[in-house]
């Protein structure tokens, strides 16, 4: 049973992890993205995430359903609002029968979330404010 959300409150990593557990699944892989201080020589102090929430939830649901159809439990929750260093921005969890699948599907999900789900990062760096990170600066 998938669970996806755009969350305005801090992510409860343990509660999300607990939702993944099931007797038919022996391998659980989670990816958690946290706010990182340094990207090369750019120092980040905080972030704002915004989303096109209704469409983002639809996109996350499509992804979760696609992976669950292969035999898995899937959880994807992305934070919006203001985040400080080490705060959790995203939780992606996959429980599958075997670990190889869980790793592969979890990485596929976060890669795809970053490419096509309408969520945006406004990054407060010590030199300036950036939409997107230093490696994908938008005009």
């Amino acid at each position: 049973m998938h669970y996806v959300a755009i969350a305005a409150q801090p992510l409860d990593v343990n509660a999300l992890y607990e939702k993944l557990k099931a007797p038919q699944f022996g391998g659980i892989v989670t990816f958690i993205g946290t706010v990182r201080q340094w990207t090369d020589d750019v120092e980040t102090t905080s972030l704002d995430y915004t989303a096109y929430t209704e469409m983002a939830v639809k996109e996350l649901t499509k992804l979760a359903v696609e992976v669950e159809a292969k035999g898995a439990n899937v959880i994807i929750v992305h934070r919006v609002g203001h985040l400080e260093l080490t705060d959790e921005a995203v939780f992606v969890g996959v429980a599958a029968a075997h670990r190889g699948e869980a790793f592969k599907w979890c990485e596929y999900l976060i890669d795809t979330v970053k490419k096509q789900v309408p969520i945006w990062k406004k990054e407060y760096d010590t030199d300036k404010i950036r939409w997107g990170g230093p490696n994908d600066v938008q005009r």
Partner: peptide
């Protein structure tokens, strides 16, 4: 209708 700038979630 929505205009979607390059996404940067994650």
């Amino acid at each position: 209708i929505a205009l979607i700038p390059p996404v940067s979630g994650g």
